[in-house]
Write a protein that binds this DNA or RNA. Structure first.
Lengths: 406, 406
DNA sequence: TTAGTTCGTCTTTCGACTAAACAAACTAAC
DNA sequence: GTTAGTTTGTTTAGTCGAAAGACGAACTAA
């Protein structure tokens, strides 16, 4: 079946060709190195058709022939691999305390990974946007210097982003109605590649579904563990977009009506209990937060140190945080029935102490049969997940058949 | 773009044809009566192609030519309409207190609508399944007697249903691991059409997206208001299926940890506060529930009567129920960002008293900008929504291009 | 050396869409 | 009443891309 539902949108030969090019490209991505004959057998496409498609992909320098197979009955096969080198996609990630830039090639190899500190709340939206755009430009130049074509650039922002790239609201950055896409586009001098802006959780879950431990899962949820908590959701293989483009806002679910005050004005929001600043405040009460958000990594390291040293207060606090997180996760699980829930961001180093409580709470609250239950795990990607995901969205377009023109 | 992501799944000419047949069929469904030329102009397909596609659809008796246009410049157009008459799809709905059967033709006209009482919990799963299968057989026979071909039959069940039609768990029916699809299939004598079983909320939301007040909304949530509460979710135009097929389990989210006991063993679940038996127990404490579930319509009618009479206790109770429901809805809204949330089942008659509280709670808890917010409304479909949706799933296959063979 | 196997290309055929011309059927205007 | 102009839907020719199957190439095994 070609398209489903929604509106008149007929198909023609170009669609068939694009679909089949994408099928071959994705097959090679998953099974490289492989031969034309193998592709034909696995996909059901005719051998001649595969040859034609592969030739097209080689012309566009998306595939490359490597050596032959040896020591097998019959004519040896010429093996095909992804040729990442001529292209790259760039992802940027904005956080309250740092910026990240990542570039990956078509084969998924990271060709660039930068992190620089950033004073999100301290700077004005205009200043911040300028800093982001500058980082983007430097990344683009670096990629161009390596003789790669840039296929696209996507920026991840912790907040609500409209489909046309306007940051409607980003409390932890102090932004409201910032047209970041236009700003970056202008700073890059209206480049020939698409620039996009998206929510960080949406992008991180894409990275997770491509490069994470559970790559390929069709129903996957990623929880950002930064100053705020957001969910990126992949359902039936597609990222959830929602009506206005703002799904996954889980941070302000009430977990405990008598809980601590939240920035949103209510009490006991998930974010106010399990957000990283809340965790730090709880485990390290002596580090009285001055409200300023700086790079929180040192504080998180200290929390980990205490937990490792079996500090009872720390262990108790983390258990309670894990339980709150478990309540939130159980809601997600019951509503969306995912295969895996991946915890990201600052939750990763804390996972050994959070996960048991999460699992306990989840077992108690999950509806449905026991067998084949959901898995909860810490991400194996580093903090640049959203940036990596930003680059991945660009590659998704290629994988879906929109090949770069010759 | 043709298919997205997931596995090798190449396209060929048959897919193009199926897609375009579906495009034409859907266009006529939405714009009947219309001419071939109009279809060509609206879809971008060539006039000749449209003629060929229409001829095919007329051959299969899915379309029919009606008269000509008159009194216009140029050659008059021959108008096309859906020809519902040769086919019908059947939907059954199982509830704790009643069964429903609905049949609709391809044009969406209801050609059959039965409701009979049913003692879900009182009968054994085998007895119940037999009763359901018998109802299905009678519906099939009625449709056949009208010289219609049956395209398919789908049963909606309030519980967890695996993709292959096994009811894993249906607490309000007392079922566990009942292979309802096989039972119905056998009772119908292995008919030539597909038989499916699905969750009632999943089906109801499909009915809502086709025939409800907000038909066509791409992001739609339906809340069943029966003995249990479940959510049917349509996201980006597609029903959410989840990893194991059990999404939408919202009934056991904890709303108030100090709330009433729930059948699941915890306290203050949404279902225990806003399920219809909980509402009745609250508004009509004198009707001490004997645990037996009979047809609850009389009790609901009495609740409505008291609310209409401005009985203070009833109004207060309904306001509190509405607030609890609002908390649940706000979680759905923040997580999924729908365009509309439709309340169904017994919530419909109670909506005038529930909706204000729901809206209040939602306004307070919704994250994101005010403008363009979500709408909450009572369904305009009757109790047979899930049955209608069951029939609609069958039509969806036709609309997606899988035409009935000649 | 020969038989058997596998790979990838070549050629033909077929199905489906597009473009453009055209006949049919009507209105409007002189 | 005739002619010009419009719109519809069909016909014809052309293009594109996949399928089918033959075929040469390159290798192993006997």
């Amino acid at each position: 079946m070609i398209t489903m539902q929604r509106g008149p949108q007929p198909a023609d030969f170009a669609d068939v060709r694009a679909t089949n090019l994408a099928v071959v490209l994705r097959y090679v991505r998953g099974h490289a190195p492989c031969s034309r004959a193998e592709i034909a057998a696995a996909t059901g496409l005719n051998k001649a058709t595969v040859s034609s498609l592969v030739a097209d992909l080689i012309d566009r320098r998306l595939l490359r022939e490597t050596g032959l197979t040896e020591h097998r009955i019959g004519r040896p096969a010429t093996m095909l691999v992804l040729d990442g080198s001529p292209y790259a996609a760039i992802g940027l990630e904005v956080n309250a305390d740092y910026l990240t830039a990542v570039a990956i090639d078509l084969a998924g190899q990271q060709v660039l990974s930068w992190r620089r500190s950033f004073a999100g709340l301290a700077s004005s939206p205009a200043q911040a946007a300028t800093a982001i755009a500058a980082l983007g430009r430097r990344a683009v130049n670096r990629v161009l210097k390596e003789d790669r074509r840039v296929l696209g650039l996507t920026v991840g922002v912790p907040g609500l982003v409209s489909p046309d790239g306007v940051v409607i609201m980003a409390p932890n950055l102090g932004w409201r109605d910032v047209n970041l896409r236009d700003i970056v586009n202008r700073a890059l001098g209206e480049p020939g590649f698409p620039v996009a802006v998206d929510n960080d959780a949406n992008l991180a879950v894409l990275a997770e579904s491509r490069y994470g431990e559970f790559a390929g899962a069709q129903n996957l949820i990623y929880l950002t563990g930064e100053v705020g908590i957001g969910a990126g959701i992949i359902s039936d293989g597609h990222p959830l977009r929602g009506h206005r483009g703002f799904p996954g806002e889980i941070g302000h679910i009430t977990i405990d009506p008598q809980g601590p005050e939240c920035g949103c004005g209510r009490r006991g929001c998930l974010e106010a209990i399990a957000g990283i600043t809340a965790i730090i405040a709880r485990v390290l009460p002596e580090v009285a937060g001055d409200g300023d958000i700086t790079d929180l990594q040192p504080e998180v390291d200290e929390v980990v140190r205490r937990a490792r040293g079996n500090d009872p207060a720390a262990l108790r606090a983390l258990d309670e945080v894990g339980r709150a997180l478990g309540v939130g996760v159980s809601i997600l699980v019951n509503l969306l029935d995912p295969e895996v829930v991946v915890l990201g961001g600052y939750f990763v180093p804390l996972a050994p102490w959070l996960l048991p409580a999460v699992e306990t709470e989840l077992r108690a609250r999950r509806v449905g049969p026991e067998q084949g239950g959901v898995r909860v795990a810490a991400s194996i990607l580093d903090h640049g997940a959203a940036a990596t995901g930003g680059a991945a969205t660009v590659l998704d377009h290629v994988d879906a058949g929109r090949l770069p023109r010759l």
